[in-house]
Amino acid sequence: MSTTNVVDNPETLPARRNQSVSQLDLIVIPVFFVLLAILLTVVWIYSDFDGTTTSILEPDRLWTQAQEQITVALWSTVLVIVLAIPLGILVTREGAPRLKNNLVTVLGLGQALPAYGLLVLFFVAFGQGTLTVVLALAAFALLPVLRNTIVGLEQVDKSVIEAGKGMGLNGFQRLRKIELPLAVPVIMGGIRTATIINVGMATLAYLIGGGGLGITIAAGLKLNRPVTILVGALLVALIALAFDFIGGLAQRYLRPKGLS
């Protein structure tokens, strides 16, 4: 699963590298997008489609699957934001340091949780359907946003908070006017990662009847149609790159002015 921005270990590295969007990201991602799009076009035009392939790769069908995939990913991202940011704020308030440290350790190990297994367990628990997929995705993508919220709030210069306190800002004002704005770049990094995880995991939704472009890839695998596999995989990759690009733009332009 993609964890573009949350790979460093908070115990050894400062989180600041989470904050900045490399200039090059916004160039390299479109370059890859264009290359893969050209590859897709070439495959589409120059491959011989037999009857099965043609019916699997019906454009209307692909469009529906893409929409399913994106819808599921977006809903789950919204759910993650609504759950993880308040939770992250809660555990970073004074008086809960133990909870926070344990949480960060657990979240680190959570990267080893097989998304595939989690999805299937949610299926067992909640049955088939879009809601199950959204919940499973949210459970998995919760980790980076929660972790980045914690790290983002923790990395705010203590002297700035101290100065705010010294000027008579109360706890809520300090959170709203100082801590959250200064944590935005890191939190945005987490949301971007979560979005990418969700788009990626939504490809597996087909396993539990959740639709998405995974259907096309799986059909290609089952019926041994490499072209179908390739088209499905490329479409999924293009969607993910597009989302990553949008996330990169958001991360870049939503960061408060004045931060270096």
């Binding site: 700035v160 101290e162 008579g168 931060l259």
Partner: peptide, 22 residues
């Protein structure tokens, strides 16, 4: 305490300017 602090200027070594504010 917040009302009290607004009546006293407070200057610290690290300054603590809000980096996201002009």
């Amino acid at each position: 305490p917040n009302e009290l602090r607004r009546r006293m200027g407070y200057v610290i070594q690290q300054v603590g300017l809000f980096p996201h504010r002009t």
